[in-house]
Each structure stands twice: as C-alpha cells, then as structure tokens.
C-alpha cells in the first residue's frame, strides 16, 4: 500500500482515501479512516496543495541520511484537511532566517537512495514541498 502512494507521487499524483461514513480525507492512505476508524473508504486524488504547519532544519542526520544535511523537514496541512510530512524545497539558511509557517506549498515526489532499514528496499521517495506564493 505505501509503495502505491509513493509510485503515484512520482507520477505527480497525491493519493488518499475518503471516508464514506464521516467524509474525512486520510492521506497518506491507511487501512482505516483517520477520524472515525471506518473501513468504508474510497480512493481519491488530492489537490497536492496546502500550507506549512511547522518545519525544522536538520543538521544532525541519522545513519543513511548524513549526505543530505542540512535539510528542511516540514509538516504540511493539505487543503483537504490531512497533514503530511516531507521536505521543504528551500535553502536551510533561508528557512532558519525567515518564518516559513503558513506559506502555501505544492507537493511533488523526489527519489533518494534507500537505506538498510527503510521498508522500500528499491528506493526512498520523499514528498517535497515547493513554495508557491
């Protein structure tokens, strides 16, 4: 299931599930609704647009990610209500100097080398957030 999400992301599509009972949109898709736990779900495509809720510039990385520092991890609230974690496509220096919270972003997928503990042994896809305003 998680591989489908990242394959779609690499094709420019952000997918999730909509709850037929309460209307909540769960993204990335999980086995049940994020709000009510229902299994009565339909797969949907999201707009891929949202705003930054929080972010951090990472200077000390785990094993397997060291070559990528400094990088900016962000949490984004999508227009459909779901939150996702990804990386902000912005310079570390800029992110530390300016307040990025609230800025509008668009998500796209980017492929990185996988590492020994990541569940996808072929590749590691990261949701990237591009500032749009």
């Amino acid at each position: 299931m998680f591989k489908d999400f990242f394959s779609a992301l690499m094709e420019g599509k952000l997918i999730g599930v909509k709850c037929k009972d309460c209307g909540e949109i769960t993204c990335p898709p999980k086995s049940t609704c994020n709000s009510c736990g229902s299994r009565n779900l339909e797969r949907i495509e999201l707009s891929g647009k949202g705003k930054i809720v929080s972010y951090t510039v990472t200077y000390v990385a785990p094993l397997g990610y060291d070559a990528e520092v400094p990088y900016v991890v962000a949490m984004v609230e999508l227009d459909e209500g779901a939150w996702i974690v990804g990386r902000l496509d912005v310079d570390a220096e800029k992110a530390d100097k300016e307040d990025m919270i609230g800025k509008r972003v668009e998500v796209y997928g980017k492929e990185f080398p996988t590492e020994q503990f990541y569940p996808d042994k072929q590749r590691r896809v990261v949701p990237m957030f591009k500032i749009v305003e």
């Binding site: 990335p28 929080s54 951090t56 785990p62 094993l63 990528e68 991890v73 990185f112 503990f117 990541y118």
Partner: peptide, 27 residues
C-alpha cells in the same frame, strides 16, 4: 539517531530524514 528514529512512522516520517530532535523542533 537512526535507532531512535525507528520509533517514528517508518514509511511516512523517516523517509524525509525526520529525527527525534526534529519531532520536538516541529512541536
């Protein structure tokens, strides 16, 4: 740091390089 990160969502949080200090930095 990698070992501690196994306590995060392995597919949807760790892939971005999120760490434990990172989680509390977001918070």
């Amino acid at each position: 740091t990698r070992a501690l990160a196994t306590a995060l969502d392995s597919a949807y949080e760790v892939n971005s390089g999120l760490t434990f200090p990172g989680v509390f930095a977001l918070i």
